[in-house]
Amino acid sequence: MTNSTTEKLEFEIHSGGFSPSGTLILNIRSLLNEPGDLSVLKDIYCNFSSESDCLTVKPRIARNPKDGWRAYFETPEVIKCIHRVEIFKSNMISLNKELENFLKMIFPQNDSEFEMVFLRQINRYGSSQNKFFVSKQICLNFKGNLGFRASAAIVMGYKAVEIGDINLQQEALNQVDYYISRMPECEFHQHPRMSGEQNLVSLLCVRFHLALSLMNKDEFISSLYSVEQLKVGLKSYFTPAHTLSICFSILAILLKIQGKNDELQILASDVLILFKNSVADCYFTPVLFGELEVCHRNVILINEILQSKRPKKSDYTKWASPNLRVNGPVKERLLNNLIEINGI
């Protein structure tokens, strides 16, 4: 490696992130018309730092199936929780700034850092695989607010569904169940991610997604009925109403399939009461206030399900689609699972 400032850039580390198991993968491309001097790539190394250790790791370089190369850095076993990674490289290699900033603070060490790098979706870096790894680290090692740890389990669950790997989904389900058991310790808070009420509803919502993805009908049904039991006794209905109505809508589909019209009638009344309570409890925060629209929509939807006479398979998928919190091919897979496990 050299400190010369006259060297011409030959390569760019344009993206990267962790695999679910903790391998750091850097995607590299040539900035020249020719492949470039590959020996430059072999000089890259990383320092992996935890709370108490810092170890140097050399990469395995391989061709990227799409273009360029990939550098694989295996996390040392002694590093149980990666706090940061520092990349050392030749001046002939540039590093994507967003990736560099992520690697400087992979693991938030207090509540303020959590809010900075993980609280909002827009602040979470990288692919579903990377977000799964980071959220798992937070679930297992974060010492800050219990509600924040629970919200990491929620992210871990949705990312596992997106990835689709059975073992990762089961791992996420275990974390979700653990934090469901801890929510009685988490007091009510106006901040949705610090509130035990909101987190419990959200944990049960991701739980039904995991169960549906895993084709586990019993757990799918039990998750929905567990949510249904939360319809009374909440200290505030404002923020939970959004997610409660999502779960109620999927439960309404299930009741329709099972021909339980009396229960469905009660659920239709309950979701209207839920909406009225959420409006009564609301305060103006633009994003949260806007989410009342979802509950309003689901009041109409559940009544449409109730009034339908002979629904077709396409009706069930139409009703379920807006209330599955995934997109694209993943949503299509869950819709197909919903049809299959209910024998429609």
Rank of each mutant, 00 (worst) to 15 (best):
T5K: 02
T23Q: 04
L24V: 00
N27G: 02
S30D: 07
V40K: 03
E51S: 06
R60S: 13
R70I: 15
R70L: 07
A71P: 10
T75C: 02
E77G: 06
I79F: 14
E86Y: 00
F88R: 06
S90I: 00
M105Y: 07
E113H: 04
S128L: 11
S128M: 07
S128Y: 04
V134L: 02
F148C: 04
R149G: 14
Y158E: 05
N174D: 14
D177K: 15
R182N: 11
E187I: 11
H191V: 09
H191K: 08
P192Y: 13
R193V: 11
M194L: 15
H209P: 02
D218P: 03
K231L: 09
G233W: 02
G233Q: 00
L234T: 09
S236K: 14
Y237K: 11
H242T: 07
L244N: 09
L255F: 13
I257K: 02
L264H: 05
Q265E: 15
F275V: 07
F284D: 08
V287H: 12
N298T: 02
N303W: 11
E304Q: 15
L306A: 06
Q307W: 00
K312I: 13
S314T: 15
K318A: 08
V330H: 12
E332F: 02
R333P: 06
L334W: 00
I341E: 03
